[in-house]
């Protein structure tokens, strides 16, 4: 009981960090990913090459390392020499990392759209940007919802990596209480909290998928 008395307020505080990082990452990474996916498909080889390089680095190195690099490493970069605050570094690392993963999902979704959809819009006099926003993107969203959903659920769990920069998320709450009482039960409690968050997200994602089921 004493464990819970200590754990619950700390978990509530930790939830602010966990859900904050989760929400900020999604809000920025999803729209940015659409832009990056389009740049990756650019006919300009320099633009597509730079974008491919960014995606390669972000997917090819651990998020933990990216967090450390942005928080500690930027201070040592010549000329820049700038230090990000703890949360600035966390948000930047998460957004950059997840934008790369989402961008590849969106790129696959855009590639899956039949060329006839572009041609149908073109002969009706629609501009490329209007075609993308009104014809292509709505169909891409339907295609990518399951894959994006997987990443969203991974993101919830990845937020636990913020401990490396000393941020107090829900896992840190469990670790602290476990240390004080030499008990394992706080970890079980936090595992249940993660499962509840994932259950809510799974339900929301299912609803989004159903919403797009109105057409085939």
């Amino acid at each position: 009981m004493r464990i819970l008395e200590m754990l619950i307020p700390m978990t509530i505080e930790g939830l602010k960090v966990t859900l904050g990082v989760f929400a900020v990452t999604l809000i920025f990474a999803l729209p940015l990913a659409v832009v990056v996916a389009l740049l990756r498909r650019s006919k300009n080889r320099l633009v597509s090459g730079i974008t491919a390089g960014y995606i390669y680095v972000m997917r090819g190195t651990p998020l933990l390392l990216q967090l450390m690099f942005i928080f500690f490493g930027f201070h040592f970069v010549p000329v820049i020499g700038y230090s990000f605050s703890r949360f600035q570094a966390i948000y930047i690392a998460f957004i950059l990392n997840y934008t790369a993963y989402f961008a590849e999902i969106f790129r696959a979704g855009i590639n899956a759209i039949d060329i006839g959809q572009y041609e149908g819009a073109t002969v009706l006099g629609m501009s490329k940007s209007f075609t993308f926003m009104k014809i292509i993107l709505p169909q891409v969203i339907k295609t990518v919802v399951p894959a994006v959903g997987n990443e969203v659920i991974t993101l919830v769990k990845d937020t636990s990596l913020v401990y490396i920069l000393g941020a107090s998320d829900i896992l840190k709450a469990a670790r602290s209480v476990s240390n004080v009482y030499s008990a394992f039960s706080p970890y079980i409690f936090i595992a249940l909290v993660y499962l509840v968050i994932v259950a809510v997200l799974t339900k929301a994602l299912t609803m989004i998928e159903k919403r797009y089921n109105y057409y085939r």
Partner: peptide, 20 residues
């Protein structure tokens, strides 16, 4: 294409209707 679209129309073999 805004000018061309008003002059000539096309009905494709597989229609290319917008499914959504």
């Amino acid at each position: 294409y805004r000018i061309i679209g008003g002059m000539i129309g096309m009905v494709f073999q597989n229609f290319n209707l917008f499914p959504h």
